[in-house]
Design a protein around this nucleic acid. Structure first.
Length: 310
RNA sequence: GGACAGGUGGCCGAGCGGUUAAUGGCAGCAGACUGUAAAUCUGCCGCUCCUUGCGGGCUACGGAGGUUCGAAUCCUCCCCUGUCCA
């Protein structure tokens, strides 16, 4: 079994710093699992590692799509697994760093072997939702996939649509796919998950500061440039925290302080959601401090060292 | 000293006689989530008890009284804050 490190934790907990450090001390390469860093040109708001860091340590799964392209958890699974193979062939330690729990799960545990998204069905279902409402769409799901309908909230349009899409395309309910079809977990790798969980106060402080720094670094200018270069405001990664706020306020008279406040708030809420996801993640060894803390770095290193012989 | 305006749960702010422990927002907490996931969605958010129920008790709308079957909502006095006039 080849070792694979996964660093998990909320945004701004210092995952990147820890990843960099471990890559240095354990001869590793970094594989991003953040859904926004996938996209080129979104740098400041995505908190991408610096050019220097990326020259020092190889980074993968960063800047691999244009903002206008579509990228899904399925794509991630496929491409990241290839990267993993390459790193193993090079006899380096793969270190997963990021914050998108679904991507990490897709990579390690696999997705069910179902259909990718279908533009055709999406459009139809989207229109139905538009015309008749989410409630109605949910009632259709109740008819076609009772189990999924119970699991998915009436208002959760994206999940209702996905469930319907799977059912309509395959004839088999999503719930059945999920419950009965075998997934394809990653093989040949042994995952060691390191969790970073700084005290809440400290985390929130770090988040607030980080958002301030993003503005100082020119987040607004970055968004302006992207728009000027023809990337439409509707581009998927512009839905990300920070980007969507800047875009909606860019031509308004809302003061920057207010925009910053909202971004900080939404980032905090995002961090909470990440924690509820990662808490469920199996076999994580948690460390109660930020990843850029020397003591934490050492502890993690000591912990990992005997486990990652390769 | 006088004239207004106002004092509501951690904060802001509605309510202006009765399904009001009190809309909403902020702040916070917990959770769900296998194909655009930094997305999307759900619940809690005065205290407390249990047989966890559209359950019971207690405490709450500056303070003290009063009117009323019933008051955050009306009246009286007091305290405090803001603006204006002296």
């Amino acid at each position: 079994m080849y070792p694979l490190i996964a660093i998990v934790g909320p945004t701004a907990s210092g995952k990147s710093e820890l990843g960099l450090y471990l890559a240095g001390s354990l001869s590793g390469e970094i594989i991003n699992y953040d859904s926004v860093q996938i996209f080129r040109h979104l740098n400041i708001g995505a908190a991408k590692p610096s050019i220097e860091d990326r020259q020092r340590v190889p980074h993968h799964m960063i800047d691999i799509r244009e903002p206008t392209e579509i990228f899904t958890a399925g794509d991630y699974q496929k491409e990241a697994r290839l990267v993993l193979e390459e790193i193993r062939n090079r006899r380096k330690l793969p270190i997963l760093v990021g914050g998108t729990g679904l991507y990490l799960r897709a990579l390690t545990e696999g997705l069910f072997d179902g259909p990718a998204r279908s533009v055709y069905w999406r459009n139809r279902l989207e229109m139905t939702a538009e015309r008749k409402g989410r409630k109605y769409l949910h009632s259709v799901l109740k008819r076609l996939d009772r189990v999924a309908a119970i699991r998915i909230a009436e208002n959760d349009k994206p999940k209702v649509i996905r469930a319907l899409e799977v059912r309509l395309q395959t004839g088999i309910p999503l719930s059945q796919h999920l419950d009965e079809m075998p997934r394809r977990p990653i093989t040949g790798f042994e995952v060691h998950a390191i969790g970073l969980n700084p005290p809440r106060d400290e985390l929130y402080k770090r988040i607030n500061e980080r958002v301030n720094r993003m503005f100082q670094a020119g987040l607004v200018e970055e968004v302006r440039d992207l728009l000027a270069n023809g990337i439409p405001p509707s581009a998927k990664p512009f839905e990300a925290i920070g980007y969507r706020h800047v875009i909606t306020n860019i031509d308004s008279c809302i003061p920057p302080d207010e925009t910053i406040r909202i971004i900080q708030r939404d980032t905090r809420r995002y961090a909470k959601r990440q924690m509820t996801w990662f808490r469920k993640q199996p076999e994580v060894t948690w460390f109660d401090g930020p990843g850029d803390n020397e003591e934490i770095k050492n502890k993690v290193h000591q912990f990992l060292k005997p486990l990652v012989t390769f």
